[in-house]
């Protein structure tokens, strides 16, 4: 079974705070498919560094405001 990446994210919260931006709109902004945005939000996929920066730029926040290392997952 694939291990979940030890990275938490606030993509869904930021998207909803961003005038309820749709997953499809975010996907288009960062150049991935809607299914990939869903996988990121559900923590099933860690985006590339480039896509992570693109997401942060869409929401005009820093990278660590979007993605955080999950210390509890290391145990």
């Amino acid at each position: 079974m694939a291990k979940r990446p030890p990275i938490l994210n606030r993509v869904k919260a930021l998207r909803e705070a961003h005038d309820g931006m749709s997953q499809a709109a975010l996907a288009k902004e960062i150049g991935v498919t809607r299914q990939t945005v869903i996988a990121i939000e559900q923590g099933r996929y860690s985006p590339s560094l480039e896509s992570a920066f693109r997401i942060a730029r869409v929401f005009q926040v820093g990278l660590e405001d979007v993605f955080q290392w999950d210390d509890t997952a290391e145990a």
């Binding site: 991935v32 498919t33 990939t36 996929y45 985006p47 896509s51």
Partner: peptide, 11 residues
């Protein structure tokens, strides 16, 4: 729409 999507990094 899904069919016309290009492969992204996850794909």
């Amino acid at each position: 729409e899904d069919a016309s999507d290009a492969e992204d990094e996850r794909d």
